[in-house]
């Protein structure tokens, strides 16, 4: 079996005073060993919720309604949380959380924060843990002495490097990165992306890269999964989704909305706003904003149709 991770029919809802928020609503995909998959979508499309589900770190008002997450063939959602943490968290699958660089513990040296899981989950001695943490700090391109620094003494880019070091300290095979560079300048973003590329290669990582920025996704992704309103609307190789004509109207419009430094096209915009996931529109969730909408779209929810080799799109234009 060549799949590092398989997600099947996953639904994750949040309980809120406005009712259930269907943040992840029937999501299925696979991640091959050594593959990088980018999850792209606007804010609120369910990307972070999906990532948090995979490493079992959802907030308490979230419920996994249905679905399976197989890692190396084992259905990890069927494990109790303690077992999952002991066997999978950080050592098999790890995540760089969205905004983590801004939520480091302010009173703890960053090196100690990297070393912590080695002591508490890995059974390492303090000395071993410190040595390993220093190696990790070097690995992400900082001087070893940074072990003794506090978060406020570091720039945003340096803190992001520390957070990446934390995620890799237990040698995971699968790494989820949630918007790792969205708060950084392009100059620092370029450095971090180059670092991530080096690490993927060096450790043969399987990667899920979450971003709202399609350009950034193209830096990392073998395949691209576009999410809209809690659902996968298009999934295929980067060449097919970005290179040739995209197959879902949302992907098409999203690409057209990107301001470009080169070329002559003027960016378009998508009228309207993303759906409210407490009461999504009936039929196709994109229909209130879609330029190609026809009557079936308003009544029936489209399934994912095959539109090419390893390429699917959730749109009636590709149906029978």
């Amino acid at each position: 079996m060549n799949e590092a991770l398989v997600v099947e029919g996953l639904r994750v809802y949040y309980r809120t005073e406005r009712g259930a928020v269907r943040a992840v609503d029937d999501v299925s995909f696979g991640l091959a060993r050594g593959e990088s998959l980018a999850i792209v979508g606007e804010s609120g499309s369910g990307k972070s919720t999906l990532g948090l589900t995979l490493i079992r770190a959802l907030p308490t008002n979230a419920s996994i309604i249905s679905g399976h997450v197989y890692i190396d063939g084992e259905d990890t959602l069927s494990l109790n949380l303690a077992d999952f943490r002991r066997r999978y968290s950080w050592r098999v699958i790890a995540m760089v959380f969205q905004g983590a660089m801004n939520s480091l513990n302010p009173v703890l040296k960053v090196g100690e924060q990297i070393a912590e899981p080695l002591i508490y989950n890995g059974g390492a001695s303090r000395e071993e843990a410190r040595r390993r943490a220093m190696e990790m700090i070097e690995l992400v391109g900082l001087p070893r002495e940074f072990y003794y620094r506090y978060p406020h003494e570091l720039s945003g880019g340096m803190r992001q490097r520390i957070v990446i070091a934390m995620s890799l300290v237990m040698n995971p095979r699968i790494l989820i990165l949630d918007e790792p560079t969205s708060a950084l300048d392009v100059t620092i973003q370029a450095q971090i992306i180059n670092l991530v590329k080096d690490l993927i290669e060096r450790f043969s990582l399987s990667v899920i890269f979450i971003t709202h920025d399609v350009s950034l996704a193209s830096d990392i992704a073998d395949r691209i999964m576009v999410m809209y309103g809690g659902q996968v609307v298009e999934l295929g190789s980067a060449e097919r989704v970005l290179g040739e004509a995209p197959k879902h109207p949302y992907t098409e419009k999203l690409l057209a909305s990107i301001p470009r430094l080169r070329g002559e096209t003027i960016p378009e915009f998508i009228p309207g706003r993303p759906p409210d996931l407490a009461s999504p529109p009936p039929g196709c969730r994109f229909h209130p904003r879609c330029p190609y909408v026809f009557d079936r779209c308003m009544r029936e929810e489209p399934p994912l149709f095959k539109v090419g080799e390893g390429h699917v799109a959730r749109c009636w234009l590709h149906g029978e």
């Binding site: 392009v186 100059t187 399609v214 350009s215 193209s218 073998d222 970005l242 290179g243 080169r262």
Partner: peptide, 11 residues
């Protein structure tokens, strides 16, 4: 030069 464009060749 550090501004990315969506191009699958980037990777």
């Amino acid at each position: 030069n550090s501004v990315p464009e969506p191009d699958p060749a980037n990777r």
